[in-house]
Every structure is written in C-alpha cells, then in structure tokens.
Design a protein around this nucleic acid. Structure first.
Lengths: 199, 199
DNA sequence: TATTTTTATTGGTCTGGCCACTCGTACTTT
DNA sequence: AAAGTACGAGTGGCCAGACCAATAAAAATA
C-alpha cells in the first residue's frame, strides 16, 4: 500500500520510539549514534539530525558532543506554572480559553453519557444533590472523567479549567445542577440516536 | 557575558523570530527560503533545516515543497513547547493519546458542523476531492479549525496530532474521504436535532 | 484567448567531509 | 608500581555541494 509519504524525519521519530521500546531505554540512557541510526534506517545522517533536533526542542532528548544522544530525565512539574505564565500573557489564547474548555467539556460529557452512563449516574446517586453542590463543580465533573479513565484527557481538562479560574474576572463557577441536567439531556439524546440507528 | 554558545540551530530560531518582527509577518505569510536564510545567517542550509524541523514539529511553521516555508496560523511556540513537555513527561498519557485525539476531533467536527457548516463546505468545494487527498488529512482537517477560529483549540489539536504521528505504531493516517463523510453525517444529525427543537 | 511547455525557485534528501569534544587505552615518566 | 601523558576511536556539530521533486510563473503554442 501506499505508504504514505511521510517526511523522512518523521520516520526517524518512529524509529527512535522503537529503540526505546526494544531496548527498554529509560531516561538517561543512550540512544544509538547518529551514524548507526542512519545506517540502520538507510537514510542520510542529516535526515537523522533533523529528526533529533525536533524532539530535542521538545525536551525529549539531550545531545552531548563526543558522548552521544540521551533520553532526557524527567523534569519537575514546574512546567505547569510556567505554562500558566505563557497562556496568561497571550491575549489570543485567553479569549479562546472559555470556548475551548466548553468544547472539551462537551466532548467529555458526550463520551461519558455514551459509554459510562450507568456507572457515572450510580456514583452520583450515591449522595444527595447537596453533597455534590458542596463539593463543587470541579469534583462533580471529575467523576465523569474518572470513569472515562483517560489521564491525558483529565490533564488537559484540568489545565484548562484551572486557567480559566485564574483568568476569570467574574467568579461565577458553573453550577452543579446544570451539569446534572446537561448530562441527562445528552444521555437521552444519545439513546435516541442509537435506538434510531437500530431501526 | 554572553556566552553561551548556543547551538547554531538555536540562533536560527532567534533569527526567524527577528524576521517575523522585522517584516511584521503574519500567520500564513512566507518566510525567506532556506537558501536565503543560510546566506544571510552565514550558516549551512542543513543547519537552517535543523532549526526549521524543530519548530515544524511544534506547529509553528509549515513547509511546502516548491513553494516555501510559511508561518502557521498560530504561533507562540513556547506555549506549545511547554505543553508538549508536560504531556510527554508522563508515559501513562501515551496510551490515552489516540482516544483523546479522537474525542477532540469529534468535538471539533461537531462545532464546525454546528456553526460553520456553510463556510467549511464552501472552502472544501473549492477544489476537487483529489486535491484534498493530495494535501492529506492534516491539512483538510485544519480547514475546519481555521473556520472555528480558536487558536488554543488549534494548538491542542495539532499537538496531539503530531504526537500521535510520533508514537503510533500503525501508521495508518485517517482518510480524507472518511473525514468528509463524518462531517456530513454530523451536519445532518445537527440539523435534525435543531429542527426537532423548533417543533 | 486558452492551453501546453519550459524555466526558475523551493523544499527534500543524500554524500562525504572536517572539526571539537569525550573517553578509554597504551605508553611513558617518575 | 603509580601517576601522568599521548593517542586513537567514536561521537555530535557543522559545512559544501549535489540531485531530485514539486510548484508557480513565464514563455511558447494552439
């Protein structure tokens, strides 16, 4: 098949991933040399280097002349606060924050209502409405995310959510009651759609 | 003092920043050609390319053979860089990538079909299907994002998309044709729902 | 005028080279 | 024998120059 004409350096990234898995490389370990990789991948060294530069800027690797290329050790979570600084000072993203958060919450609600409606509702029903109101929107929403069981999604949501809190002038937090209503509504819609398909 | 002997490709990034400021380049504008930059910076073309690859993966630029190198419709590559490190730090998130990407794409499709169905379809119809197939899934999908006009959302999507390319073992890229079909389907569904509400 | 062909420019990739740095090893020197 | 030294192999950093493939603009043609 066709083989999609990836750019060569994208294949390099692919290959590096394979090295990491095959040799169980951990942070700090050395990757094969540029020349070795070029030989094995049958591409030129310059192509290898293009791939390396890309993920170097991403902080995945670290190169030391005379020694080699190494997987970078994990960094501390100070990243998060740095990140907030950048998003903060970027007016464009600030304006888009609410919108993006809304879309992603919508996606999460949909996913939850589609695949985990039972268990989510069950957990919610374990307490009175007042209990959730007291816990707040964040905690209540996180129930959905917990059941979806996707850490990355959870992180992204939490990031956006936290930043919106930071930036928000008017501190009106979303209402727990509304959250329940929206979830139910989506659940119904999803059911209607799927039953329609069955016919 | 100064010092720090930057790697040459980091100076390239600096220089590109200067180009952007000096010439007031906006997203979509063309950068000088690789050969021009090499000449002006007094470095080799391969060095220029290493710098370009780095910020290409970050989503800052886009290269088109025969045409040139262009600023992507969004920038602030620090944000992207930090975001990516953050995400990459945690191996656990790796397994969630495809899922998260899928959810977010779904949300984007939905948003596009709900509020920008006209203009998106219009832009797509401006060319034959083969044109979009040739441009690939990424570019075709970005049409939707462009119309939604949310830089943050665009960044997040591009990040996830790029990383999935990096990490995925099965290289099957989504099909442009399927994209069109899904978009149409969602458009229809959205229309049905809203007309129902009117009754 | 419309279409085809040519040409110049651009990114994509390769080859092969030289340099600077690191590290281990063999070789002095003490 | 121990300490220092010189050397060589390997590595990343960078370069010059080349060819290909895609694109767009200009020129030639119908």
């Amino acid at each position: 098949m066709t083989t999609k004409q990836n750019k060569a350096y994208e294949n390099v990234l692919e290959k590096i991933k394979n090295y990491i898995e095959r040799d169980h490389l951990k942070p700090g370990d050395r990757l094969p040399s540029e020349r070795e990789m070029a030989e094995e991948l049958q591409v030129s060294r310059s192509t290898i280097r293009e791939g390396l530069r890309a993920i170097e800027l991403l902080g995945m690797i670290e190169t030391r002349r005379g020694e080699g290329t190494f997987l970078r050790p994990y960094q501390s979570y100070q990243t998060l606060s740095l990140l907030s600084t950048f998003i903060f000072q970027d007016p464009a993203t600030k304006k888009d924050l609410a919108h993006t958060l809304s879309l992603i919450e919508q996606a999460i609600l949909f996913e939850g209502a589609t695949h985990y409606q039972q268990s989510i509702t069950a957990e919610w029903s374990g307490h009175q409405v007042n209990y959730w109101k007291k816990r707040g929107y964040k905690q209540t929403f996180q129930v959905i995310i917990k059941h979806i069981n996707n850490e990355l999604l959870a992180k992204i949501w939490y990031l956006l959510y936290a930043f919106r809190l930071t930036l928000n002038e008017d501190n009106k937090e979303s209402e727990v009651k509304q959250l329940f209503e929206r979830f139910d509504q989506i659940s119904v819609t999803v059911k209607n759609l799927s039953s329609k398909e069955d016919m």
